[in-house]
Design a protein around this nucleic acid. Structure first.
Lengths: 185, 185
DNA sequence: ACCACCATGTAAACGGTTACATGATTAC
DNA sequence: GTAATCATGTAACCGTTTACATGGTGGT
């Protein structure tokens, strides 16, 4: 299950350009699957080469021409096979938590700053998801995925807010006792 | 911040073999950073080449020889610089949620099976983290990271448990109305 | 003036996963 | 007998990220 599969998936909801697909990724998948143009355009080209999507060019005035992609019957079969065969993996890679794990090697102000950055990053995401959960005309699965994001990001935000001050204080206290072991260089 | 940095980080807690470092990843980082031998051994070789770690070989009877790695002063400086300069990213890539998003294209039993698999995957991880949160002699940062894992995985488990039946029922109802659009192929 | 939006693509670099290769010991 | 643990490493492959390349429109 990669960017190609997700592209096929969003195309089952209707024809779209690469640019619009990118927006789908941002709006609907952003909390569990990130992809940029550099992944999406090559993915679409590859799907086209394999006959899983077709595209028609549309000329535009004052704007670059666009290509509207549609999923083909073979594409639908390939998607169904992929969804049927994919094991449910769920992978987190967090530099944020790695940084926190080694908080004792960092100046306390940096620890506080890092946590503030994460809060600032998560808040708009939660707000965006909030809209999805309550939206009508979404499939149950889409609401489930959005609800998951709200629950988990909400828990993450609550946790870092509740524990920030304690952590910063403890790191500061440790730095006082054992000044500049590493952090000062 | 990559596998190399995390290796340097665990080596500040004491000398270790590649094999032991792998265990650190499993015990302490598993909920936010996954790495296998195929990443760790090359990382260690590269750190050694750059002079950020040194290693001494130890012969063993009835076992392969091992190499014990130690961080050097340059390694400590490189680690401090890396920790100081890394922006706090936190990335999730979830085939599980992608599958759920497209639940309407799946047979209901598969939806239920997928959720059960995730529960089975998360439960032992939460149990392992639980040990870390309460453990003495951990730095505040380590406890913070473990606490985060407990809070967030706990929320994830609670959410999927609470919403599984509803989702499966709704998907089944939709499949009845619109039989085998894709899912049956 | 400058930035965001619309719109598509390529190429190189990077990092990680997977599979392979080897092999003795210990516990079930 | 079968599996897990200890122990190290390589090589091919895969997918993604980043940077580059281009350029008009519309809002502040």
């Amino acid at each position: 299950m990669d960017v190609k599969t997700l592209c096929l998936g969003v195309l089952t909801e209707g024809d779209k350009t690469g640019y619009e697909i990118k927006r789908c990724f941002e709006d609907a998948f952003s909390h569990f699957f990130v992809a940029g143009f550099g992944s999406i355009y090559p993915a679409l080209a590859e799907l086209s080469r394999r006959g899983l999507v077709t595209s028609r060019g549309v000329e535009q005035e004052g704007r670059p021409d666009k290509k509207i992609y549609s999923i083909t019957p073979e594409g639908e079969r390939a998607l169904a096979a992929e969804l049927a065969g994919t094991p449910p993996r769920h992978k987190v890679r967090s530099q944020f938590l790695a940084l926190m794990y080694f908080a004792h090697l960092l100046p306390p102000e940096r620890v506080a700053g890092i946590i503030d950055q994460m809060i600032a990053q998560w808040e708009p995401t939660v707000a965006k998801i909030e809209g999805c959960v309550t939206a009508e005309q979404l499939t149950p699965g889409m609401r489930f995925a959005a609800g998951y994001g709200r629950a988990v990001l909400g828990a993450a935000l609550a946790y870092v807010r509740a524990n920030k001050e304690d952590l910063v204080r403890e790191v500061a206290a440790a730095t006082d006792r054992e000044p500049l072991a590493l952090a000062g260089e």
